[in-house]
């Protein structure tokens, strides 16, 4: 769908499906909320810096304000002590929202298989995309962003997708 197509006459109407129009609008205006705790957050700094430049994909408005954000990027190790905070941040974000788990620690605890590290953030919150690596290269995170955008463009947004999710900190 191209809005400023010079081949089209000026006075024109574009017929599309509402879902697709909304998906197209969402695709390039994702606002990330970066929950950066450790080494992966340093790699996220690279993603935001000029060499990799996340703003090429319309996701550079990094705010630490969960209520204004729709893409939660959990970058780094999440410990049990950090758990309730991550849960609170996730709950404060309004729908529609997506969660990217960046790096081995956030995905599975990584090589910190011990008493203090949560063995994956999906213990407490639902995750849409997992990015492997310790830490992942900036390209890997950009790839995750692109695949999320593709999903927004081609598929209908399903707000029910995590309906059956029950985390360890839910209803306690």
């Amino acid at each position: 769908m191209e809005l400023n197509n010079p081949a089209l006459p000026l006075e024109t109407a574009i017929a599309t499906k509402l879902d697709e129009a909304i998906g197209w609008a969402r695709e390039s205006s994702l606002w990330p909320m970066i929950f950066g705790t450790a080494c992966c957050a340093i790699e996220f700094m690279s993603v935001a810096a000029s060499k990799y430049d996340i703003s090429r994909f319309g996701a550079e408005v990094v705010r630490f304000s969960p209520r204004q954000a729709d893409l939660l990027i959990v970058a780094g190790t999440v410990t049990y002590k950090q758990g309730p905070i991550l849960k609170q941040i996730y709950d404060q974000m309004s729908e529609p929202k997506w969660v990217v788990s960046m790096g081995a620690c956030a995905c599975s605890g990584g090589f910190y298989d011990n008493y203090t590290t949560m063995q994956g953030i999906d213990t407490i919150i639902p995750v849409d995309l997992y990015v492997g690596g310790c830490p992942p290269r900036p390209e890997a995170l950009l790839d995750a962003l692109l695949s999320l955008q593709k999903d927004l463009r081609t598929n209908k947004y399903n707000s029910e997708r995590h309906k059956d999710f029950k985390g360890a900190l839910d209803n306690v």
């Binding site: 705790t37 450790a38 780094g76 190790t77 410990t79 002590k81 950090q82 905070i85 620690c105 090589f111 910190y112 298989d113 011990n114 008493y115 203090t116 590290t117």
Partner: peptide, 11 residues
Amino acid sequence: IGYLHRGFEKS
């Protein structure tokens, strides 16, 4: 502090 205590010494 301790939010990133990931058990280095025990590991």
